[in-house]
Design a protein around this nucleic acid. Structure first.
Length: 595
RNA sequence: GUGCCCGUAGCUCAGUUGGAUAGAGCACCGGCCUUCUAAGCCGGGGGUCCCGAGUUCGAAUCUCGGCGGGCACGCCA
C-alpha cells in the first residue's frame, strides 16, 4: 500500500535495473533492497534512492558510475528530474501533475484514505490494560491503556482483523484480600468494630463496595461462615471494580472486545489441560528445584532472596531449553497451579481461538515474564514469532517539580479518572502517544495543565479546525467545495508550499504501514506534526497574497481540494491516535499580561 | 552480581529500521493581526548525539567494552 508516488519511483528504478541487466551492463544477481525515501532536505527532490550505493559492492563498480547508468536508462514518464548527489544518491523529482494527483486520490478514497486497500486476512489479538480487578485503573495502567488502544487502532488501519482483549486477574491471593476487605467494610456499615489488617485495601472505593453489599443483601452475611461470605465478597468486589474499570475505559475512549477471566481458566480445566499437554510432550519433570537453577549471586534485597525459603519443589516446565534463564515451576508440591501456569493456558487459548498474531502490551516490570511465555508456547509447538510484546516503561507523575507517590496499600491512588478529569482525555492520550513506549518519561502535570493553551495537542487540533473553517467559509462565500476537482484546477497548485503539502499528504499510507509494522503509534503523531506545521506556514505566508478563497475560480477550487484532502488526512491520522478532530476551536482565554 | 530498557539543545522528547549540513515543542531574545481563527507565523542564540574502540562508501542508529539512570531477577499476581 505504498503511496502511488513512491511506487512510481521504485518501479522506474527496478525496470531500469532489469533493462541494464538484459543489456549486459549490470550482473544484477539479485534485486537490491534499496530504499525510496523522502530526503530530509526538500531541495534534494521528492524521493531519494540508494540503489547505486547498494550495488557498488556486488557489481564491483563505483556508486556514482552505477548511478549514471541508471539515470541514462530511465524511461518513466512520471519523473521530471533525476540528480546524482552525494556519495551516489539518486534524487528524483516527480512531475507536478503526479504530485497534484494526490489530492484527487485522497478525496476519492475519503475515509478509506490511510487505511490498507485490502484486508491482510491476519487475525491479531492485542491484549492490553489487564489490570487486577482489585481496584480502579490508576496511572500505573494509563500508559499501557492508551498505547495498547492506539496499537489496536493502527493494526486495524493496516488491514488486520483486530480483537482487543482485557485479561482479568481475578484469581489468587489478591482478590481474596479484596474479598476480606470488602467483608470488613460491609461489617462496618452495621457498626461492627473491625480493623483492616496489613495488606488489605484501605482506599475509599472498597468502603463504597461494602455499602453497596449491605444495601443489596442487608445483614445476610453477618452471621454466615467464611466459606459462604468470602466467595460472595470476592465476586461482588470484582464485579463492582470491573464496572468501575469499564466506566473509566469508556471515558478514556478505550474499548475492549473481550474480557477474559483467569479464574475461568482454572474452573474450566484449561489450566490443568495445558499441564497435561506439557506432560504428554515430556516437557516437565518433578523436582525440589529447577535442574538448571542459576546460582548467580543475587542482590540480598531482591525478592528472590527474600522468598527463597518458600520454594518447596513441584512440577517444573523445561523453559530453560527454549531461551528462558532456567526452568520454571508450574505446579506446587500440593498440586496447585501458579500464576505462570494460568498465563500459559491463557496464551494457548489465544492461538486455539485462531489468532495468527498475539500482541501483549504490558508494563516493563513484567519484562521478565516474556521469555517464560515464549518458551512455554514453543514447548507447545507454537512458533513464538507469532507473539510480540510491547513493554511500556514505568512513568513518573510529576507535580510542582516533585514525583507524585502512589501506593495501593496505603490507599493513595491516582486514578485514571482523576488524570483525565484534570488534563482532559485528548491531552492525556496525546501526552502518552508522543513518546515511544519503551522509554521512561515524566508526566509533568504542570506542563500539560498550566500551559494548556499551548499544549501540542491543541496545535494539532487547530490544524484540522483551520481546514474545516476554510471549507465552511468557502461555502458561505458562494464558492463551496463540492468534493470534486478537475486536472485543470489541480494544475493551479504551483506554489512550492502547495507541492510540499501534497507530497506530505501522500505519505500517510506509508507512515501507517511503517508504524503498524513497528507497533509504534507515535510515528503517526510526528507525521501529523510535520503536516500541520507545513500547513500553518503556508497559510501564514500567503495570508495577504494568495488566499485559498479568491476571485480565481479554478485556483480556489484547486486549493479547496488540497485543504479538503489535508483535512481528510488529519482526520484519518487522529482516528488512529484516538484524538478528536474538532471542526471549530474557541479562541483561548486571554492570558494575563506577563510583561 | 545477572538480564532487559534508556542516555540527543537549559527542560520534555523525535530522529523514516545504516544515509547527505542532527530536528520539534517548552523556556529565553526580537519581529508579524483592517481580510479564511495570532491555539498561528518568521528570525536569533543554544550540541563532546554519555565516553572509548570496532564494522563500511557512510554510524545518533549496528557490535564489543566502560560510565550513569530505571525495571526486573518469587512456588505474588
Amino acid at each position: 500500500m505504498a503511496t502511488p508516488m513512491r511506487h512510481h519511483v521504485r518501479k522506474a528504478v527496478e525496470d531500469t535495473l532489469q533493462a541494464l541487466k538484459a543489456a549486459g551492463a549490470l550482473k544484477l544477481e539479485a534485486m537490491p533492497a534499496f530504499s525510496v525515501d523522502p530526503p530530509k532536505q526538500e531541495s534534494h527532490g521528492d524521493f531519494s534512492v540508494n540503489a547505486a550505493m547498494m550495488l557498488a559492492k556486488p557489481e564491483g563498480k563505483k556508486p556514482r558510475d552505477i548511478a549514471e547508468l541508471i539515470v541514462k536508462g530511465l524511461t518513466s514518464d512520471a519523473i521530471a528530474k533525476v540528480e546524482i548527489a552525494g556519495p551516489g544518491f539518486l534524487n528524483f523529482t516527480l512531475k507536478d501533475s503526479v504530485v497534484q494527483q494526490t489530492a484527487l486520490e485522497v478525496l476519492k478514497l475519503g475515509d478509506a484514505y490511510g487505511r490498507a486497500h485490502a484486508k491482510t486476512g491476519t487475525r491479531v489479538m492485542v491484549e492490553y490494560v489487564s489490570a487486577n480487578p482489585t481496584g480502579p485503573i490508576h496511572i500505573g495502567h494509563a500508559r499501557g491503556t492508551f498505547v495498547g488502544d492506539a496499537i489496536a487502532r493502527l493494526l486495524d488501519a493496516a488491514g488486520h482483523e483486530v480483537t482487543r482483549e482485557f485479561y482479568i486477574n481475578d484469581y489468587g491471593k489478591q482478590v481474596e484480600t479484596l474479598g476480606r476487605t470488602v467483608y470488613k467494610r460491609y461489617q462496618q456499615t452495621f457498626g461492627e468494630k473491625v480493623e483492616l489488617g496489613p495488606g488489605e485495601y484501605p482506599a475509599d472505593y472498597v468502603i463504597e463496595i461494602g455499602k453497596k453489599l449491605s444495601a443489596r443483601d442487608g445483614k445476610k452475611w453477618l452471621a454466615a461462615p467464611e466459606s459462604e461470605w468470602l466467595p460472595e465478597c470476592i465476586s461482588f468486589g470484582i464485579e463492582q471494580n470491573l464496572e468501575m474499570i469499564r466506566a473509566s475505559l469508556e471515558k478514556a475512549g478505550v474499548r475492549h472486545d473481550v474480557f477474559s477471566s483467569e479464574a475461568a481458566l482454572h474452573h474450566s480445566g484449561a489450566v490443568k489441560g495445558v499441564v497435561d499437554v506439557y506432560k504428554k510432550r515430556d516437557a516437565t519433570y518433578e523436582a525440589d528445584e529447577a535442574r538448571n537453577r542459576k546460582n548467580t549471586e543475587r542482590n540480598a534485597e531482591s525478592k528472590a532472596a527474600q522468598y527463597a525459603d518458600r520454594q518447596l519443589g513441584g512440577t517444573f516446565l523445561k523453559t530453560g531449553e527454549h531461551g528462558d534463564d532456567e526452568d520454571r515451576i508450574i505446579l506446587r508440591k500440593d498440586g496447585t497451579a501458579v500464576y505462570l501456569t494460568a498465563d500459559l493456558a491463557y496464551h494457548k487459548s489465544k492461538f486455539d481461538r485462531g489468532f495468527d498474531r498475539c500482541i501483549d502490551v504490558f508494563g516493563a516490570d513484567h519484562g521478565g515474564h516474556v521469555p517464560r511465555i515464549r518458551a512455554g508456547m514453543r514447548l507447545l509447538g507454537i512458533d513464538d514469532k507469532r507473539m510480540e510484546f510491547v513493554l511500556v516503561q514505568i512513568m513518573r507523575i510529576v507535580r510542582n517539580g516533585e514525583e507524585v507517590k502512589v501506593s495501593k496499600r496505603k490507599g493513595t491512588l491516582f486514578e485514571l479518572d482523576d488524570l483525565i478529569e484534570e488534563v482532559g482525555a485528548d491531552v492525556c492520550r496525546f501526552t502518552f502517544l508522543m513518546r515511544t513506549a519503551n522509554a521512561q518519561f515524566d508526566f509533568d502535570l504542570d506542563a500539560v495543565t498550566k500551559r494548556s493553551s499551548d499544549n501540542p495537542v491543541f496545535y494539532f487540533q487547530y490544524g484540522h479546525a483551520r481546514c474545516a473553517q476554510i471549507l465552511k467559509k468557502a461555502a458561505e462565500a458562494g464558492t463551496p467545495f463540492l468534493g470534486q476537482v478537475t486536472t485543470e484546477q489541480l494544475a493551479t497548485l504551483t506554489l512550492p508550499e502547495e507541492r510540499m503539502l501534497l507530497k506530505r499528504i501522500s505519505l500517510l499510507p506509508d507512515v501507517v504501514a511503517g508504524a503498524a509494522d513497528a507497533l509504534e503509534p507515535h510515528r503517526v503523531l510526528y507525521y501529523c506534526q510535520e503536516l500541520i506545521a507545513g500547513f500553518h506556514q503556508y497559510y501564514s505566508k500567503y495570508k495577504q497574497t494568495e488566499r485559498v478563497i479568491s476571485d480565481d475560480a479554478a485556483k480556489t477550487q484547486g486549493r479547496l481540494a488540497m485543504v479538503a484532502a489535508l483535512k481528510q488526512t488529519l482526520k484519518a491520522a487522529f482516528g488512529i491516535l484516538g484524538v478528536s478532530a474538532p471542526e471549530y476551536m474557541e479562541a483561548p482565554p486571554e492570558e494575563a499580561e506577563a510583561k
